[in-house]
Design a protein around this nucleic acid. Structure first.
Length: 108
DNA sequence: GCCGTGACTCGAA
DNA sequence: TTTCGAGCCACGG
């Protein structure tokens, strides 16, 4: 039995994101012990589109901007999903971001 | 087996 | 204040 892969750890943390909350790639990266590998988190999220348990739409960059919305089915799906959870998106950016931000480090 | 790319982040000028 | 450069690791060609 080996340790979970980098991607697997990212998915594991992403699955822990509660409804109505969002987090950042860097926060997840840091939670899995790879704060400097935030890019890999985003890369992993690309594959996460194949996994329903991974709410990639709740993962934004540290500015709360929907950097990866283009990777979703269409264009405004990611924004729409977030709005469905009660978030407000303006100019591809989540308003009140600090208030809805969820720190995975608190769960890990 | 090497090179380029990418849903990021931080520090410095 | 904004902009630029460097670091990081994994995957595809």
């Amino acid at each position: 039995m080996k340790e979970p892969s980098f991607f697997d750890r990212v998915y594991d943390v992403a699955k822990l994101i509660p409804y109505g909350k969002v987090t950042s790639y860097g926060a997840i990266a840091k939670a899995i012990g790879a704060a400097k590998s935030a890019r890999m988190v985003g890369y992993a999220m690309n594959n996460a589109g194949n996994i329903e348990d991974v709410p990639a739409h709740r993962v934004l960059n540290r500015n709360g901007v929907l950097t990866g919305k283009h990777h979703f089915n269409g264009t405004n799906l990611m924004q729409q999903l977030l709005e469905e959870e009660g978030h407000i998106i303006i100019d591809n950016q989540v308003q009140n971001f600090s208030d809805v931000f969820w720190d995975p480090m608190k769960e890990i």
